[in-house]
């Protein structure tokens, strides 16, 4: 499908901003998962700035779409998107992981716009199934979205949830799989290979679409296809690069659960800024605390 060029550029700018914020937040927090956030920046941009029907002024609006981040460790990207979408002041991002902050190390109901407590892998997709079931029960048009990881697919609970979603014919549920190939101890394929994931989800009764997870047109097309798919849930397998956008983080195992040092942060932001300038993107809103 064709989209207005300014829409794609606007979403690319949001992805760029989400990447910058995620890096700054985790360096400030001196902990967290920057590379897991970078791999899903386009997915977050597409969801929060195009797909999800949400109202930041009324986070509890009953008719809203729901989003559950099942791979909860990627929450810096979600928090950045929520702040930019207007759920809270972006300066709050700098309190990530600090005592008393509403931005916890993993998604928590304390945060405006966060719909479920997640982070223990496998839990989020199961919660999303429950939400979608409630929507079906009440015959409401709102939809449920969730993002899971490829390493997360090693959890048996993911497959319990996948079986149930198809059994209950939850076509109001759309999951996106951030397929970045790496987990804490090594490459996902080497640790415990969950592939072929497309065939597995198909066999479990899902409609499966594969996309380049950094190509916004492909992501938007797949989300639209999910909305058109009746009688079964959709799994969008998004092939991504862990650490996307920062040369020394891309494909690197050591960056799971490790923030950039202040010096590394300067280098990372410079790389992102140079890429964005070449792509003709607007400068992002500044976040205090940049290195």
């Amino acid at each position: 499908m064709s989209y207005p060029p300014d829409l794609i550029k606007r979403l690319q700018t949001h992805a760029y901003t989400i990447r910058r914020h995620s890096l700054i937040m985790t360096t400030r927090a001196a902990s967290g998962h920057p590379s897991s956030s970078l791999s899903m920046a386009e997915i977050m941009a597409a969801l929060y700035f195009h797909e999800l029907r949400v109202d930041p002024r009324c986070p509890d609006w009953p008719e809203r779409d729901r989003f559950v981040l099942s791979k909860g460790h990627g929450c810096p990207a979600q928090f950045a998107a929520l702040a930019e979408r207007g759920f809270f002041d972006r300066r709050e991002l700098l309190t990530l992981r600090q005592l008393g902050s509403f931005l916890q190390g993993h998604p928590d109901l304390k945060t405006p716009g966060v719909e479920a407590a997640t982070g223990s892998l496998g839990n989020g997709i199961s919660i999303a199934v429950g939400m979608a079931l409630a929507g079906k029960l009440d015959r409401r048009p709102w939809r449920v979205y969730t993002v899971i990881g490829d390493g997360e697919c090693q959890e048996g609970m993911v497959w319990e949830a996948a079986m149930a979603a198809a059994h209950f014919r939850l076509d109001n549920l759309c999951a996106l799989l951030d397929f970045n190939g790496l987990e804490t101890d090594g490459p996902v394929r080497e640790i415990m290979n969950p592939e072929p994931l497309d065939d597995k989800f198909r066999a479990f009764g899902w409609h499966v679409v594969e996309v380049d997870g950094h190509d916004l047109v492909q992501i938007l097309d797949a989300l639209a296809e999910a909305r058109r798919t009746a009688g079964r849930p959709t799994m969008i397998i998004a092939h991504t690069v862990k650490g996307k956008g920062v040369s020394f983080m891309e494909h690197e195992l050591d960056w799971h659960g490790k923030p950039a040092s202040p010096e590394q942060l300067r280098q990372a932001l410079a790389e992102l800024d140079a890429w964005a300038a070449a792509a003709g993107l607007e400068p992002p809103p500044p976040l205090d605390g940049e290195a």
Binding site: P62, R66, V68, E115, A116, G122, N123, I125, S126, I127, A128, V129, G130, M131, A132, L133, A134, G135, L137, G156, M157, E160, A161, M163, A164, H167, F168
Partner: peptide
């Protein structure tokens, strides 16, 4: 019957689905 959900032999998912239903305003 419309308000009863059999999740099969999957107790983890039983709790997760209940959480999702509660978050959507149901009383599981």
């Amino acid at each position: 019957p419309e308000r009863f959900f059999e999740v099969g032999i999957a107790e983890q998912n039983l709790m997760g689905i209940a959480a999702g239903l509660a978050l959507a305003g149901k009383k599981p």
